[in-house]
Design a protein around this nucleic acid. Structure first.
Length: 271
DNA sequence: CGCCAGGGTCTCG
DNA sequence: CGAGACCATGGC
C-alpha cells in the first residue's frame, strides 16, 4: 500500500512530476521511472521493479509504524491525512546536496533549484528529457557564480565546498553508512552548510535512519502548539531531544506526517 | 512593501 | 548552551 502523491509531494524529495493525473515520472538515480497506483498497488510503467520497491521502501511495515505513533488528536489527524506516505530511500548524495540548498527556502524553490542544477550540470538520461542529479565532482568543479545562477544565493559556496569534500573522498558517504545514528549525524555536521536539521533530513531520507527527527520552523510550531507546556525551553534542539523519544523508533515517520499535514492544511486555509 | 521560507555559521555571553 | 546578526532569493 502506498499513497504516491503524498509520498512524492510531502517535501522529502523535489523532482518528481505528475505527467497526467495519477501518472508520475522521475528519476531513481540515473534511471527514468514512470509509476502509477492501480487498485492500491504500485505499478511500474517504466523502470526496474526491484529498484522501485527499494526506493519507495515498500518493505517498511506501515501498520507497525502507525502502531508506534502517539494516539493523540494531532497525530491521528496527520495519520488520517497522510496514510500510505512512505519515507523514501533516496541516494545519499542527492539527498544531502538537495537539503544543503533547502535552508530558508520554500519547497517550491527547492524544487526549482534541483531542476536548475540538473539542467546545468546533470548528465542526460538517454531516451528521456531528464538529467540526473549532478555528481559531487561535477559540482566541485562548478564556479560559485554558476551555482548562484541556479538560484542558490549564499548556499552556493556551501554546496560547492561539500561537493569538493565528497568528491575528494575526505567525506566518504558510502563508508559512513556503518556509523550509528549519532556518529553519522556528527560526521555530516562537519560538512559546510550542514547543521543538525539538514543532517537529520539526510539521515532520515538518504540513510534510512527512521528515528531521525528534523526540526524546522513548521515542526517547531506544531510541537509548541500541541506537544509543549508553556515555560519549557523550545529551541529546536530542546524540541528534538524531548520529543524524538516520545515518537519512538519511527519518529521520523511521525515527523513527516505532521509536517505534510500542517503544511497542506495551512496552504488550503490561505487559499 | 514587509514577511516568511524544511537554516547554518559566527560572535558573544 | 542560547540569543542575535547576517547571509540571498522568490512568492505572496
Amino acid at each position: 500500500m502506498i499513497n504516491l502523491r503524498a509520498t512524492l509531494e510531502c517535501g522529502q524529495v523535489f523532482h518528481w512530476t505528475e505527467k497526467e493525473v495519477g501518472l508520475w515520472e522521475g528519476l531513481i538515480g540515473k534511471e527514468l521511472t514512470v509509476l502509477r497506483v492501480e487498485r492500491g498497488q504500485l505499478e511500474v510503467v517504466r523502470g526496474n521493479a526491484t529498484r522501485v520497491a527499494r526506493y519507495f521502501a515498500m518493505d517498511h511495515d506501515l501498520a507497525e509504524v502507525y502502531a508506534g505513533f502517539p494516539q493523540d488528536e494531532t497525530m491521528l489527524a496527520a495519520l488520517d491525512f497522510c496514510r500510505g506516505l512512505r519515507i523514501l530511500r533516496q541516494p545519499a548524495w542527492e539527498c544531502l546536496a538537495t537539503f544543503i540548498t533547502s535552508s530558508m527556502k520554500q519547497v517550491v524553490h527547492i524544487r526549482q533549484m534541483s531542476f536548475a542544477l540538473r539542467e546545468l550540470f546533470g548528465r542526460a538520461v538517454p531516451g528521456s528529457g531528464w538529467r540526473a542529479y549532478p555528481e559531487p565532482a561535477r559540482l566541485a568543479g562548478a564556479s560559485e557564480n554558476e551555482l548562484r545562477a541556479c538560484g542558490l544565493g549564499y548556499r552556493a559556496k556551501n554546496l560547492q565546498a561539500t561537493a569538493q569534500r565528497v568528491a575528494s573522498g575526505e567525506a566518504d558517504l558510502v563508508g559512513w553508512e556503518v556509523l550509528d545514528d549519532d556518529d553519522l549525524r556528527e560526521a555530516l555536521c562537519t560538512l559546510p552548510g550542514v547543521g543538525r536539521k539538514v543532517a537529520n533530513c539526510a539521515l532520515l531520507f538518504g540513510f534510512g535512519r527512521l528515528s531521525a527527527f528534523p526540526v524546522d520552523t513548521w515542526i517547531a510550531r506544531i510541537m509548541r502548539r500541541s506537544y509543549w507546556r508553556g515555560g519549557q525551553k523550545s529551541t529546536p534542539l530542546a524540541l528534538e531531544r524531548r520529543l524524538a523519544s516520545r515518537f519512538g523508533p519511527h519518529a521520523g515517520y511521525a515527523q513527516q506526517y505532521l509536517f505534510h499535514h500542517a503544511r497542506m492544511t495551512a496552504r488550503r486555509a490561505r487559499g
